[in-house]
Write a protein that binds this DNA or RNA. Structure first.
Lengths: 203, 203
DNA sequence: AGGAGTTTGTGAACGGGAGAACAAAACGGC
DNA sequence: GCCGTTTTGTTCTCCCGTTCACAAACTCCT
């Protein structure tokens, strides 16, 4: 988030910023920002602030976005389609090297300039491109078996868009994004709002 | 998450479950689950466990998924396209009532059975369908102005997929989903793994 | 050179979530 | 009807992230 805020500041032509400004851009408290940055090192100048370009490079180096990460996406339904085309991945240092789907009827499609290939090709693709990050955009029922195959093939980080809890061995990282859970959280607060104001009754 | 786990258990034909089982399905600790459920009330039976259907209804009622929530999606690019087609929304009680885009060249498209309409129609749609939840899938530069218009039109909950920090008045909830941040977090851990094992050097 | 004004970096206090542990309650067998 | 077993609901403790507050350090102006 700080890196993204710095990029935004750099695009606006800002060369130096205080922790207060950067915190506002990132939407956090300035003390938290200073403490977070202090874990990386002492990259600011007291009385002046942070050099935008310098700090940007230091953060990029620390979090590992200085080189491209190859990524495979499994499950080319609506969501996988969008992810394959999502420009944010490429601009943040991720390169989609393959799109896989278990459904043979999808194998003739070309999405985002890539052939949709058979899920059976997973191992060879992972080996060839030295892929360590996989994205699961399949239905929930398929997600665990896809994850197992990914782990067996050597993938050690998984981004899971399926609404399922994956079990993986130690040493493998999983992050889960559940789009409808986010909406449900908003709906919950909406409901509480209407209860509080008495606009709407809840049986 | 608990609701989803309960639905899964119900589909498997389970009628009763212990906190231990449900916690395992949801991927959390059983003490935490019991504590969370205790905030809703005392819906379990000691020595027996929870009735799946009963608990499911109670949670659904509490979080407000007993009735459908109308939703508008603004920005019908790749991501908006996928969101409009995403079946998880409908099955979780959300109904997409309109798709809006500022680009007139998109207005002839039909996505997921809905016309893509002009962003200018926002106010009338919100009023007509009593929409309180809006989804922003525009580029980052447009997101703040879209949010402002949404708030002015009466929307009080926003799900923001743009990589930007939105500022909104009190009483409006914003949740942010940033797809590439998730990948960056995985990449960070990957980098640390390779540093720790000495597989790869970091200058 | 020195003091006033800024801004970072960090020690201390605060708050809240997570897990362990246990009392209360329900069921089943005798 | 009573006791052992099981499982919930809740309290207590611990730990971690966040925030406050302040000393150290840097710049600018006189």
């Amino acid at each position: 988030m700080y890196l993204r805020a710095l990029i935004g500041l750099a695009e606006d032509g800002t060369t130096t910023c205080s922790s207060e400004e950067l915190a506002a851009s990132a939407g956090v408290n300035s003390a938290k920002l200073r403490k977070d940055l202090s874990y990386l090192g002492s990259y600011g100048t007291r009385g002046v602030g942070y050099d935008v370009e310098y700090l940007r490079y230091q953060i990029a180096r620390e979090i590992g976005v200085t080189h491209d990460w190859p990524v495979v996406i499994v499950g080319i339904g609506n969501l996988g389609h969008a992810l394959a085309n999502y420009s944010g991945f490429r601009s943040r240092g991720f390169r989609v090297v393959a799109l896989l789907d278990a459904d043979p009827s999808r194998h003739d499609e070309v999405v985002a300039g890539l052939d949709v290939r058979s899920f059976e090709d997973l191992e060879s693709i992972v080996t060839e491109h030295d892929v360590s990050i996989g994205v699961i955009a399949t239905p929930a029922v398929a997600s665990q078996s896809v994850a197992d195959r990914m782990v067996a093939a050597g993938i050690t980080s998984i981004l899971n868009f399926a609404p399922s809890v994956l079990s993986v061995p130690d040493g493998v990282d999983v992050r889960k994004v559940d789009l409808s859970i986010e909406l449900q959280i908003l709906a919950y607060h909406e409901q509480r709002k209407s209860v509080a104001t008495g606009t709407e009754g809840v049986s």
